[in-house]
Design a protein around this nucleic acid. Structure first.
Lengths: 197, 197
DNA sequence: TGTACATCAGTGAACGCGCGTTCACTGATGTAC
DNA sequence: TGTACATCAGTGAACGCGCGTTCACTGATGTAC
């Protein structure tokens, strides 16, 4: 039966939220339309009232995941860009992030699938990655022309740590990797120094 | 018709080689048994004379990819471990590596799928990652207890650079990422210093 | 404000395709004598 | 060494299942009067 405009908007939002989590947890091919809809308490048929295809959903869901991260950085940015990045790093290199890919960085979970998953998805990854880099660059503003390379190095380091830790599997090796990365000079520059330093 | 023992062994090897490349290029779900066999000039039916399932093939193919990398490091290691790692880094942070995932690092291409692809595949990733780390650690031998953390940091940095560059998509951003990583202190420590330094 | 009709979100069956796996068959290879 | 038979690598049709997508239908919502 027809639903109210608000109910419809809530359905769409629920589909996006759930898809964004499930795709990060199981990969694009590990999640079906029926899975997403069931997790929203609906059946699969109604899906196409909200999105034209699975690829369109995936693109929107990944954009949504990037936006979450950018919003978080922006919200934390009110205490100064360096503090925001400090919190970001702390969350990134945590056991919680390892254990909860569905809430974590979309680059680490799905980045390597970006190229295979269709042009619209590749586009979303490209734009999202660029945006994250720009926000992190701001935190290195005092480094002048080196700000952007520093941001690139930081993000690469974080992404690599997570991908490698997940590939490693063993809990001991995961801890070893996280600890080694926390001791990285670029990371320590943020987490060890006082704010605004 | 029945084939000679040698021909059979060659078939198995061809399937492994081809699968190892195709999986890295298109992901586990992007490659079918029929694709692999066709690339070997055969039809899909004969596959099960060589492997019990697609997952068994994937596990063997990834192990094969890791072994290639380890053998390469070992071969180059004859000029000293630091030189071997220098070459490894140079190849890793190259445009060629970006453009040819099918010949590249299996962690960067498939690492984030390791957990979804079945226990035997997760096991292969775990063992392969550990082995790579051990070989890289050797190159940091003169750092004593810091050797292993340094190796972890180096590999994370490399993996992250590739994943991020592939997610970024844009050619300009990819170059920027590769260049930034080449300027990373840990990387420069290898590529800028003379051998055995 | 109340009424009649059009719209459309969601349901569940059905379609079609791809893909992993199985199987009967072929004929060259390997082996027992 | 030669012969007869068993083995088995590879073929191609077929099976079965999952999944993306479509569709006729329902009934509450939105809207025109």
């Amino acid at each position: 039966m027809r639903r109210s405009k608000q109910a419809t908007a809530e359905s769409r939002q629920a589909i996006l939220d759930v898809a964004s989590r499930l795709f990060r947890e199981h990969g694009f091919d590990g999640v079906g339309i029926a899975d997403v809809m069931a997790a929203c308490g609906m059946t699969h048929g109604g899906f196409y009232r909200h999105f034209t295809s699975k690829e369109a959903l995936a693109a929107a869901a990944i954009a949504h995941a990037f936006q979450e991260k950018v919003d978080l950085l922006q919200a934390e940015g009110r205490m100064g860009p360096r503090d925001a990045v400090r919190v970001y790093i702390g969350d990134y290199l945590s056991r919680g992030h390892l254990a909860q890919p569905q809430l974590g960085c979309p680059i680490a979970t799905l980045g390597s699938q970006a190229a295979h998953a269709g042009p619209s998805i590749a586009q979303v990854f490209s734009a999202g990655t660029e945006q994250l880099i720009n926000m992190l660059s701001a935190a290195f503003g005092d480094e002048g022309p080196d700000a952007r390379p520093s941001a690139l190095r930081l993000l690469s380091t974080l992404v690599g740590a997570l991908v490698m830790a997940r590939a490693a599997g063993s809990s001991d090796l995961q801890d070893e990797i996280l600890n080694a990365m926390r001791a990285d000079p670029l990371v320590r520059g943020f987490t060890a120094l006082p704010p605004q330093a």
